[in-house]
Every structure is written in structure tokens, then in C-alpha cells.
Design a protein around this nucleic acid. Structure first.
Length: 584
RNA sequence: GCGCCCAUAGCUCAGCUGGAUAGAGCGCCGGACUUCGAAUCCGUAGGUCGCAGGUUCGAAUCCUGCUGGGCGUACCA
């Protein structure tokens, strides 16, 4: 209950100062040294202040000092204080805080947790970055989950957020699928074959690899095609456009299915030239230099790095070239206060270089670029490898999960009740998937076990959905009984039991969790808070009758507490992209 | 070689930025549905927080050095 921390810091500091002056001791910075923590057990109080740091100057043992402070502070209208060994523990006045918190939550209209810590900030966030030669895989799903969730969290903190995507639609890898299609495609289309466009194109990318094993001119032919593409060859361009559209339509369907969207699309094919121009400008100004081998390079020795090629000796652009163009173009389109790149940690070095180059080019906003670096998704026996066919396809994974969820719904006999069983199964799937991907701290690698990982029981997304659905179920029942479920006035004296107090504490803390998640770009904090809330609630309603209570006044108060928990869950679900279900 | 990151229960992960006895889920074993939805709840077992030093009243958390793993260090993207 950090909310009430400050007040007690002041009071305790004041007491310490008085004590110090009585003993002719000089005491400074008491406030800063008083750091409230949560006691290990609820019955020990709500905030604990360790007094070790003061023991030396007071020449008192910490427990002695604690009891001295506690006896002087005594009781006030906000709560009371007790010494517990070397700690001063604060017991807050529950009933006031309960009714105040519940009122705030119940009148928040689906926004509990939102705050204005980032109000006025314009934040652009790039994520997903698909290639147009193959479908999305599990790695993209983590990226998308992180990007979409971070964007929603930033918005909840009051920021003006623009979600953008960079489509890697240019390069030799694109030409490889095109070439294979030209050779083996026989005019197939997504329509004629019934195969999703991105899958179809991806299949030809695989075919190219097979073909290249037998024909060693294949790679060369792909290079030639790229040159034709760069020269604007009509036939190549036309095929390129057609196949890109297939892929993007297919990938777009996956985005729709996973509730991921973008405000603006950027295409590498349209931006690499702008990057090139800027590098040439930098070369003129002497920021970059031409190496003996003819390539254009940047010297990064002043930040302890080597040199990096920016343009090949034949003048063509490399990967980083378009990122330079993209960043500039974005600042022009929508002058941001911050630009976040959601990209895997294998590119940490790349972004260090990119940010350095933009700084050297004199763009002040280069200071506002941030790489949200995340770890890889590995399989139990190691990395996903496309060569070995161990890449987990996003669509396949989602389809399999949905089938499992559907089976589950049928097994529980809930098919009639939920009306559209497949839609419900899809929603459960997204909950399982997104929760699984977001519960891990972004920077850490994670392991995905296809057989065991995505369970619907325990610490999972569906568990959260289930708790919300159970509360909805109570709400429906209450309405049937003619109760007013809109009331936000709660008699706090009815809800002061430890479990209730704990729930109120979780609710009261949620805005701070959202704020922290925004600051740290870490959705896992939200996931953890929601799980904690759901778990505590679930024990609470298991042990305590809520509606089935002879005391109607108490029943109504408990229902209000439940509805407040529902408020937090609903808004939290939205922040980590988990669908809310009134029934499941 | 050099640089960055990681290491917590059998497995997958938390640990609120230094505080009291390190927590969940899965799995194992054992309980709870004539009662608000059992996708639930309760209990048992499971730890030298990779190793060794250091800072501190106090370290999983901070500093140093090791060990093990990942990634990067391309005129690939």
C-alpha cells in the first residue's frame, strides 16, 4: 500500500527528529532513509519501516529505537503503529481506505489502472517487422504481443501512441520466393489453391532452397533478379507486387486473429533510398569516410566500436541504410518524443550503431530512440531453425490451440451455454498465448514446449478469464434478483477481513503497476498483478459466501468488491491483449 | 579474441530495484463438487538463489573474478 507511504514517512521522520534533538544528536536525511516495505505477513501490518539505518547515530539497538518511535506515535485517524523487533509497522485504518478505493474503482468506467504519468508524450512504437517471403512464426508472436501490449500500456499512462510496422519487402530473400514461383508456380494463386497467401509464398521460399541444392546457378539467378528489381524491370516488379500482396494479406489475417493492429505501415522498399541520400550527405560532411576498398563506412572508435559498412563498394545499400531512412521519415511524419523499436536482442549491436549514426548526422531526436530488446523463444532442444523445419508457424499454433480449447468446452458441456463455441475457443486461445508470452520479463530468453507449455490450467490466461467469467456469473445472478449492481457507495466496515483487505490493496496498487509497466516497457508486471488478484480473489470467494449470504447487506458489499476486481481484470486484460469473456 | 545478455525447486517462470522464514504454476503424492461455474480450491514433498571473494547492520538483488550457456562482432537481413 505504497499510496499511504509518504504520510507515514513524514510522521516517523518527525518523531525521529524530535528524539534526536532531545539527545543532542544531529540527524539529517531521515525521510530519504525511511523506506517502507511490505511486511512478510498481513497480520504484521501494512507498511514496515526498518530502523537499522538509524541505530548507529542514536547509539541504540534497532528494536529499542523502534519501540521508542512506536510508543511516541501511537494512534491517529489514519491508522496506528506497532514496533516489531527492529521494524516500525503501520496498520492502516481499513474501513476508510476500503470504501474510498472501491468507490474509485467502481466509478472508473473500465479504466482502473490508467493514469497520466505520460500525459502529453508522443510515443511511436515499431513492432512485428515481417518479411514478405514467409508467414509469421512464434518469434513474431512474442514480438507482436510485446509491441501491442506496450502500446496499450503507454496509452493507459496517458501517452499519445502511434503503432507502426516496418515491412521488409525488399532484398534477395524476396527474390528467392519469386524466382521459385516463376519456375514451379504454374500460375497458382491463393484463390486457386485455397492456401493462405503468406503460406503459399513461404512454400516457394522453401522450394527455392531445395532447388538451390541441385542447381548452383540458383543463387546467382536470385541476385540477377534483385538487380532487375532495383532497375525497375516491369515484369519483376509486377510479380513482386502480386506476391507481396499475397503475403501481406495473409499476415494481415493473422494480425486480425490476434487483435494486433498498426496505425501506419512503412515499407523498406520505399525508404532505402532516403537512407542512402543521408549517408551520402554525411560522407560529404566528413562524418563518414570512403574506405580503400571503396565502401562507405562509419568509424565508431569513440564509442569503443569498430567500423561499419554503410554502403557497399558498388554503392548499393545494406540493411542499416533503410533503418536510417525510416527513422528520419518517421520523425518528419509524426514528430515523436520517443521512438521505441521492439526488436530481438540479437540486434542489440545493430541499434547501438543505428542510434550512433543518427546522432552523428546531427539529429537531436536520436537521443529519443529506444530499443526494446527482448529474448528469443527457444524450443526444449534449442533454437528454432527453419533449415531443420522446427520453426513453429503462428497460424498452425493458433489453430491447434483453438481445437484443444474447443474440445475442452465440449468436455465441460459448456457448448450450449457459450453460444458460439468456436469463437469462445479462439478467445481462450489468445488468452493462453498472450499470457504465456507476456508473463516472462521481455529481456529474457524463454522456452516454449509445444506439448506442455500452453496449458489452460494454473497460472495461465484462461485462468484469468475464468475468474472474470465467474464474477460475471454472479453479477447476472444479482441482477436477476433485482439488485442494483451499479452502486459505488460501499460500507467499508463490512469488508475489513484480511482477505478483503488484501484484495483492496491489490486494487489500490494497480495504477502504480500500470505506471511501472509503462516506464519499464514491461507487460509482465501487469500479467503478474492480474494473476495475483485473480488468485487471491479465487480463494476468497471459495471460502466466503458472496451472494449466498443470509446477511443481504454483507452480500451486496462483497458483490461490490467482486465487481471491483472484475473492473481491474477487464482493463488489465485489455493491456495484455487477452479477450474478456462473460461466459466460457 | 573482444563486446553485450542470461544463470533461482525436477520443468516453466516470479521476486516490488538492499530488508523479517526466497514465492507461484506444472509435474508427484493426498484431500474438497446435493451449496454463488471443479478451466477451481486446500494440503505434503521439493532450494547452498551457478561458484568464490567483496561492500553493508542486512545481498537472490550492488561490485570483482571465475564457470557454464545464448547472442553479436559480414560489402546477410
Amino acid at each position: 500500500m505504497a499510496d499511504w507511504n509518504g504520510e507515514w514517512v513524514k510522521q516517523i521522520a518527525e518523531t525521529l527528529k524530535i528524539l534526536a534533538s532531545e539527545k543532542n544528536i544531529e540527524l539529517n536525511g531521515a525521510e530519504a532513509r525511511l523506506k517502507g516495505a511490505r511486511p512478510p505477513k498481513a497480520d504484521m501490518g501494512d507498511i514496515a519501516f526498518p530502523l537499522f539505518p538509524f541505530a548507529k547515530e542514536f547509539r541504540m539497538a534497532p528494536p529499542q529505537l523502534a519501540s521508542e518511535v512506536a510508543s511516541r506515535l501511537g494512534e491517529s485517524s489514519h491508522g496506528r503503529v506497532e514496533a516489531a523487533g527492529p521494524y516500525v509497522n503501520v496498520f492502516l485504518k481499513r474501513e476508510n481506505i476500503v470504501s474510498e478505493t472501491l468507490k474509485n474503482v467502481l466509478t472508473s468506467q473500465g479504466t482502473w489502472g490508467n493514469n497520466d504519468s505520460l500525459k502529453g508524450r508522443k510515443i511511436m512504437i515499431e513492432f512485428s517487422s515481417p518479411n514478405t517471403n514467409k508467414p509469421l512464426h512464434l518469434g513474431h508472436l512474442r514480438n507482436d504481443a510485446l509491441g501491442e501490449s506496450s502500446a496499450r500500456i503507454l496509452k493507459a499512462n496517458g501517452a499519445d501512441v502511434q503503432k507502426v510496422i516496418l515491412v521488409n519487402d525488399r532484398g534477395v530473400h524476396i527474390c528467392k520466393s519469386m524466382l521459385a514461383y516463376k519456375k514451379f508456380g504454374q500460375g497458382d494463386t491463393p484463390e486457386s489453391t485455397g492456401i493462405k497467401g503468406d503460406r503459399l509464398v513461404g512454400d516457394y521460399y522453401v522450394k527455392f532452397a531445395q532447388w538451390a541444392k541441385e542447381d548452383d546457378t540458383a543463387e546467382k539467378q536470385a541476385q540477377e533478379m534483385l538487380q532487375k528489381w532495383e532497375a525497375g524491370d516491369e515484369e519483376v516488379r509486377k510479380l513482386w507486387e502480386t506476391m507481396n500482396k499475397w503475403t501481406l494479406d495473409g499476415i494481415g489475417e493473422t494480425y486480425r486473429k490476434t487483435n494486433v493492429s498498426f496505425d501506419k505501415y512503412y515499407y523498406e522498399s520505399q525508404l532505402y533510398k532516403l537512407g542512402k541520400e543521408n549517408i551520402l550527405k554525411g560522407l560529404e560532411k566528413g562524418i563518414f569516410y570512403k574506405d580503400e576498398d571503396g565502401s562507405t563506412r562509419v568509424d565508431m572508435s569513440e564509442i569503443g566500436l569498430d567500423t561499419k559498412v554503410l554502403l557497399r563498394s558498388d554503392g548499393t545499400s545494406v540493411y542499416i541504410t533503410q533503418d536510417i531512412g525510416t527513422a528520419i521519415s518517421r520523425q518528419n511524419d509524426w514528430p515523436f518524443d520517443q521512438l521505441i523499436y521492439v526488436v530481438g536482442n540479437e540486434q542489440d549491436y545493430h541499434f547501438q550503431v543505428l542510434f550512433y549514426i543518427l546522432k552523428k548526422l546531427g539529429y537531436q531526436w536520436a537521443e529519443d530512440l529506444y530499443h526494446l530488446s527482448y529474448g528469443m523463444v527457444n524450443l526444449p532442444d534449442g533454437k528454432m531453425k527453419s533449415r531443420e523445419g522446427t520453426v513453429v508457424d503462428a497460424d498452425d499454433l493458433i489453430a491447434n490451440l483453438s481445437d484443444l480449447a474447443l474440445e475442452e468446452i465440449r468436455a465441460k458441456g459448456r457448448e450450449e451455454e457459450v453460444e458460439d463455441a468456436r469463437a469462445t475457443a479462439d478467445a481462450v486461445t489468445l488468452a493462453a498465448l498472450h499470457y504465456y508470452l507476456l508473463q516472462v520479463t521481455p529481456k529474457k530468453d524463454m522456452v516454449f514446449n509445444p506439448k506442455e507449455s500452453l496449458s489452460f490450467n494454473g497460472n495461465t490466461g484462461p485462468y484469468l478469464q475464468y475468474m472474470a467469467a465467474r464474477i460475471c456469473s454472479m453479477e447476472r445472478k444479482a441482477r436477476e434478483m433485482g439488485w442494483n449492481t451499479e452502486d459505488s457507495q460501499v460500507d467499508g466496515t463490512l469488508l475489513t477481513a484480511d482477505e478483503e483487505w488484501e484484495l483492496v490493496g491489490i486494487l489500490a496498487d494497480f495504477p502504480r503497476v500500470v505506471e511501472q509497466a509503462g516506464k519499464d516497457h514491461n507487460p509482465s508486471l501487469i500479467a503478474a498483478a492480474l494473476y495475483n488478484g485473480a488468485k487471491v480473489f479465487s480463494r476468497y470467494y471459495h471460502d466466503n459466501p458472496i451472494l449466498n449470504n443470509e446477511n443481504t447487506t454483507l452480500a451486496k458489499a462483497r458483490l461490490q468488491l467482486s465487481l471491483a476486481v472484475l473492473e481491474m481484470l477487464k482493463n488489465g486484460f485489455d493491456l495484455i491483449n487477452i479477450p474478456f469473456l462473460a461466459k466460457m
